[in-house]
Write a protein that binds this DNA or RNA. Structure first.
Lengths: 249, 249
DNA sequence: CGCGCTATTGATGCGTCTCAAAATGAGTGG
DNA sequence: CCACTCATTTTGAGACGCATCAATAGCGCG
């Protein structure tokens, strides 16, 4: 029950976790795997039998079309659980790829039945996170459907910043973005060429600044207004959760 | 515990429900409200305190931008639960509007704590449905990001067809589409003008046929191939659910 | 019968794509 | 420490899909 669990860290940001809940979660991170940059350890069509807790590194999931067009649907950071959305299906719907060398903890999906059977509160938390993710996707949908390239880019960058801040409150306005412009394009429904032009334009205006793989969000408030950004990560309302099981800390 | 509950009908399509589970669900539909076509009973910013089971009618939820651009993010049919995605937030993130006269059943979000506390299996089912919805949104995201107008339209129509078939297995290839072209545009990230042009083109090719508000999917297979459509509604894998509580039918 | 909303059609404009070439940068081996 | 390679980014010219604007036609409804 060591405290170096990313999952426990991320979840307890939203709700108090009892000792037994922590133990339950720790079991999900018992095993580790390393994968190097570029590897795809979960592919479209694979059977759904494991979920993965990200321990270190960045990854992304994408959904492609038969002709090669692809859409990156989610960036995964340490503490995220990969694969939850595919649980109700027999086969994995997307492909997951490591942006950089990563360490992930696989656990069998059947481990979830114990969570649901023994910890109503943890079950509610998983459910709430799933609901939260839905809203994230709705935000993205609105961005893809109704925003132009610059607004989408602003939304994308602010979303990353907000997520990184959950686990790293030190973070101010600069972070490492280990994605190629082609990947950013696949996330935003743009071409790599237009991503380059958009970033250059944003930099000239002074909204952002780039140095190598580092990116600095200079005019955060202005960008947030341009894309009507809302931080969905900072807090969650858990008032409707079932009462905590009696099990003092 | 009458069998006319849309919610029970829809959920038991995916998993066997015990008698107590049915009773729990029936309680969620105790109260009814009627709203007429065009009314918006849930608005962006309202406090999140109730969820709604759709009993009759069609509705849609949309997310808008300050300048009026809007994205319709979900069409709701009988048996759907509205508002789950907003549970972790203090305020509702989108606005919901009735396409036609509707009957909905509000229930307090706190009713969910009883579901989680007393029926692990039902809790898992809610969680699975939430995961399923995530995949729906990922499909939509891929469509919005990487498909052209005709492909998006095909995806939209096939999605509606698949959903209607869950509760109405009689349905073959024709259904009533109570949306204006402007609303369809807002759902697909297009203008109403281009929706008109796209539908006309699809009709001329022979892929669809329109008569008033009725639409017929003529070349279903061809459309499905064009947009790489997968039916996410037909079945769900529930093998990882916790065991059923002993409570004979 | 006429009013208002919705759908259609056509002309024009703009944002992003496509294609192609050059520039930059990171990693590798000599 | 430099030369080379390969991936990535930048830049520019031209094309295309969808938006915009505007006018007309159709239709449900009082």
């Amino acid at each position: 029950m060591s405290d170096d669990s990313c999952l426990v860290a991320k979840l307890s940001h939203y709700s108090h976790l009892s000792r037994s809940d922590r133990a339950l979660l720790a079991r999900l991170e018992e095993n580790e795997e390393e994968h190097e940059r570029g590897s795809e350890f979960l592919r479209h069509g694979d059977p759904v039998d494991h979920l993965y807790v990200v321990k270190a590194g960045w990854l992304y999931s994408y959904h492609d079309l038969p002709d090669g067009r692809r859409q990156i649907t989610r960036i995964h950071h340490p503490g995220d659980v990969i694969g939850q959305a595919d649980l109700p299906f027999r086969n994995v719907t997307g492909t997951t790829r490591a942006c950089i060398d990563v360490c992930i903890c696989p656990f069998p999906k059947t481990a979830l039945d114990e969570v649901f059977a023994t910890s109503p509160r943890l079950a509610a938390l998983f459910y709430a996170l799933s609901a939260r993710d839905q809203v994230i996707y709705l935000d993205m949908l609105r961005a893809m459907g109704r925003m132009n390239a610059r607004e989408r880019m602003a939304h994308f960058l602010l979303d990353l910043l907000a997520r990184l801040r959950v686990t790293n409150s030190m973070l101010t306005d600069t972070f490492r973005l280990p994605l190629t412009q082609s990947e950013i394009g696949d996330a935003l429904g743009l071409t790599s060429v237009y991503v380059s032009k958009t970033l250059t334009a944003m930099e000239q205006i002074g909204d952002i600044k780039r140095v190598g793989v580092m990116i600095r969000i200079v005019e955060e408030a202005r960008l947030a207004e341009a894309c009507d950004f809302e931080d969905r990560y900072r807090e969650m309302n858990t008032s409707w959760f079932p009462a905590e099981t009696v099990d003092a800390v």
